[in-house]
Amino acid sequence: MSSLEVLATGPMSTVQDTGRFGHAALGVGRSGAADACSHALANRILANPPEAATLEVTLGGLRVRARGPVTVAVTGAPTPVRIDGRGAALNEVLHLPDGAELSLGVPARGLRSYLAVRGGIDVPPVLGSRSTDVLAGLGPALPEPGDLLPIGPAPQARPLLDHVPTAPVGADEVCLRVRLGPREDWFTERAHRTLFDDLFEVTPRSDRVGARLAGPALERSREGELPSEGMVPGSLQVPTRGEPVLFLADHPVTGGYPVIAVVCAADLPVAAQARPGTRIRFVQWR
C-alpha cells in the first residue's frame, strides 16, 4: 500500500476530515477541516468519498515524498505546488510516481490549503473522525518529518475532470454575512452599529480555534457573567476584556462570554481563509 512520507510540515499541518458528530454532550467538539468547502473539493476532484481525510496545510511549507505511486489534488489557499521542482496546478488531478517529492509554497492569499490523496489519509480514527482537534488534544498527532502517512484503498469511482475551476480563495478584505444573536441584547445599540459600520482585522493570535479580531470596542449594555453555554462555529464571542474571537473548527464546545452575532454557514470557509492582516466587514444576513 502506498503512503506519504512527511519531509517538512511548515508552520502547521494537520490531518482533517468532516469532523466528529454526536459527541458534543461529552464535551467533544466537531473539529474537521476549517475550510470545509476546499476540503470537499479536493476529495471530489479525486472521486474520494467526502469524509476522506486530507492534510490541512497552514501557510504552505509542507513537503512530502510519495512512497509508491500516489494520486493527489491541492485546493484552498493558492499555494505554489511543485513536484520534483517543477510547477503544478491547483485544483487538478496530479500523479506522483514512487519517490516524487511534492512541495507547497507560501500562498499569496488565503491561509489554508488542502492536500487530498486518492484513497484518503488512513490514520486510525478517534471517536469516528480522523480530525485533529488542537484545542481538545484529540485525534491524530500532528504530522512530523519522518512520519509515514498511510493511504487508504482507492475508491471505485474514477476522477471525472482533470481540472476544476473555482472562485479565488483569500482576499485582503472579506465580507462575512452574520445574523445578530444569540446574545445581542448584552450589547448596546451603538455596538450593533459599530459591528456593521467598522472594519475588523484578523490578528496573528489566530488559529484553528478562532480568528482573533482587532477593531473598535463592542460596548456591553449589561454587567455580570453569562452562565457557560453551547457555541457554534462562526460565533463572534466578545470577552469582557480583549479581542473578539470568531470561532472556527476547533472552538470550545461551551463558552462563558456573550456572542453578539454568528456568521452564516455558507461564509465559514471564507472566515477560515482570513489570514492575519485580513480586514473583515460584517454585513447583516437576512
Binding site: R183, V262, W285
Partner: peptide
Amino acid sequence: LNCADTGVL
C-alpha cells in the same frame, strides 16, 4: 435564540 443557520439556543 438564534445562532444564524447553524444552531438554535
